[in-house]
């Protein structure tokens, strides 16, 4: 049982990594990117290409994939999603849903429906004993990465001049224009961060389990649940939500292995019913708080 909880906490880090970008894009431009999970899968395949075809180490593949994803994020935002920004959330939902379908089919054409997995070397099997439990080095590393990414993003938003402009634009894009800020550029930066962070998540996911071109929607669902449980638009809320979701799934699996995913969904629904603003959500579910 304690083992299941610890495993759940570590899994939660991965979910938080998936959720951070989703939360940021919603917080800054009120846009729910339904292709978010597919971007993670795309990044996973990108890493597979680098490792298998170019023969680079997985770590180097990660360092190549993340900036590429960020550039893609900026381009997709400026070229496509910028046209959907407006008072109604529907256009962006439809466009990102379409993007999700297109990405899945392109990946199916290019890579077939075979399962893939990223090699993580001997790392996968190693573990450290902690208080009588054996904790895998890989989940631990992923959890640490998640905390580092969230912490870095949080500091970036709170302390840097670009972070300040992102928060200002989130508060009032028109007033930001009057200060010489181009909101479209700011939205591009937010999308770049979102795509870059979900690329890290996709890579981490690919090292822990196998994935296919159609894995994206499930990942989106977990990210979405983590965001809602933690509190919409709250960056650290994604970690709280991710951990809660991960613990629920692992404890659920401990009780009945067939009900792992169901247990997570039940906790999500419970939070939605009892505390719809999320665990960390304050008054209105509004801002990305650093």
């Amino acid at each position: 049982m304690i083992d299941a909880i610890v495993q759940g906490i570590l899994t939660g880090g991965l979910y938080a990594l998936f959720a951070a970008g989703l939360s940021l894009m919603f917080g800054v431009m009120r846009l729910v990117n339904l292709a978010h999970g597919d971007i993670a899968v795309l990044a996973g395949f990108g890493a597979v290409i680098f490792v298998q075809s170019a023969g680079v180490s997985p770590l180097l593949a990660l360092l190549l994939v993340v900036p590429l994803a960020a550039v893609l994020g900026y381009a997709v935002q400026r070229g496509l999603l910028t046209r959907t920004v407006g008072p109604s959330p529907l256009p962006s939902l439809l466009v990102t849903f379409g993007l999700s379908v297109v990405l899945q089919n392109v990946l199916l054409l290019a890579f077939s429906a075979d399962q893939r997995r990223l090699p993580s070397g001997s790392f996968t099997q190693q573990s450290v004993p902690v208080l009588g439990l054996s904790i895998g080095l890989l989940p631990l590393a992923i959890f640490a990465t998640a905390v580092a990414v969230l912490g870095g993003l949080s500091l970036f938003l709170a302390r840097t001049s670009t972070g300040r402009v992102i928060r200002a634009t989130r508060d009032d894009p028109e007033a930001a224009r009057l200060m010489g800020v181009n909101p479209r550029h700011v939205y591009g930066i937010a999308a770049a961060i979102a795509f870059g962070s979900v690329a890290v998540a996709g890579f981490a996911y690919g090292t822990t389990t196998s994935f296919t071109p159609t894995s994206g929607p499930v990942l989106l669902l977990f990210a979405f649940e983590a965001v809602i449980i933690g509190g919409l638009g709250r960056l650290w809320g994604t970690l709280v939500g991710g951990v809660l979701l991960g613990v629920a799934q692992n404890v659920g699996a401990y009780i009945d292995p067939a009900q792992q995913i169901l247990a997570g969904h039940l906790v999500f629904l419970l939070v939605l019913a009892v505390r719809p603003q999320g665990i960390l959500g304050g008054r209105a579910p509004a801002a990305v708080t650093a």
Partner: peptide, 8 residues
Amino acid sequence: GRRLFASL
């Protein structure tokens, strides 16, 4: 209406 950045 001032239009300050409320959370800043």
